[in-house]
Amino acid sequence: MPSSREIRNKIKSVKNTQKITRAMEMVAASKMRKAQDRMKKARPYGEKIRNVAAHMSNASVEYRHPFLISRDSVKRVGIIVVTSDKGLCGGLNTNVLRRALNEIRTWETEGNHVDACCIGNKGLGFMSRLGTQVISQVTGLGDAPNMERLIGAVKVVLDAYTEGQLDRVYIFYNRFINTMKQMPVMEQLLPLTDDRISSEDGEARPTRAPWDYIYEPEAKPVIDDIMVRYIEALVYQAVAENMASEQSARMVAMKAASDNAGNLIDELTLIYNKSRQAAITKELSEIVGGAAAV
């Protein structure tokens, strides 16, 4: 049986760990609320721009944007992988990366080349270990998804798509379902699928005579701008969801860790008391034995 001093040290160290996990749990809980707020605030923009895209697809536009045209042969696939920068959030990153890995394997066996854009440190590390070509990256986003910092990384992917270096683009992230549940998902970003450009409420526009917008200054640049912003909004939304997922996953993971530490402390205390009792009993019997000998 280990000495009582050893056990006491062990208990102390577990208690310290528990303090840390409990603090992290509380920090994550307060950040989670903010992250969820941000996620909800980002929604109207996504909806509005989607409506505009839907109107545009209804209008008899003379110019069809490349993002809307699906290509027959797919040779190169682009993926945007959204992960967190930090760990200690349960299986969150592992799940989404496993999902991505499965897809990458399938594409590679089909002979497709895969280019990755990594948002978040964990995904970046994983992709470079895997040997996947990383064409752009953003890390260290902090607690708020920052549009300013996302633009560059997304533009690299969009440019590659427009130039024909990528034939399809997918995005991987954790969808926030509720505090206890996050789901790793894969969504097709490019070419834009029909359900992404029909308006959310499925409103059937009264069939009017063919109409089109007045564009200022010209159709092409305006439509280009809208499309780029739409994709950016989708990526932004994904990042915001992933951040909310990250904080809630961390909160749950840290809660489990604190609980486990509590259990461990209980068990160790029991062992400690037992060993203390044994020592006392031993000492007593020695004294009694000694007295009897005299």
Binding site: S136, G152, V156
Partner: peptide, 16 residues
């Protein structure tokens, strides 16, 4: 935007 894209690309290349 172009500058930002280049920056993101350069960082990725560095890591590779």
């Amino acid at each position: 935007d172009e500058a930002k894209a280049l920056e993101a690309k350069r960082k990725a290349e560095e890591i590779m």
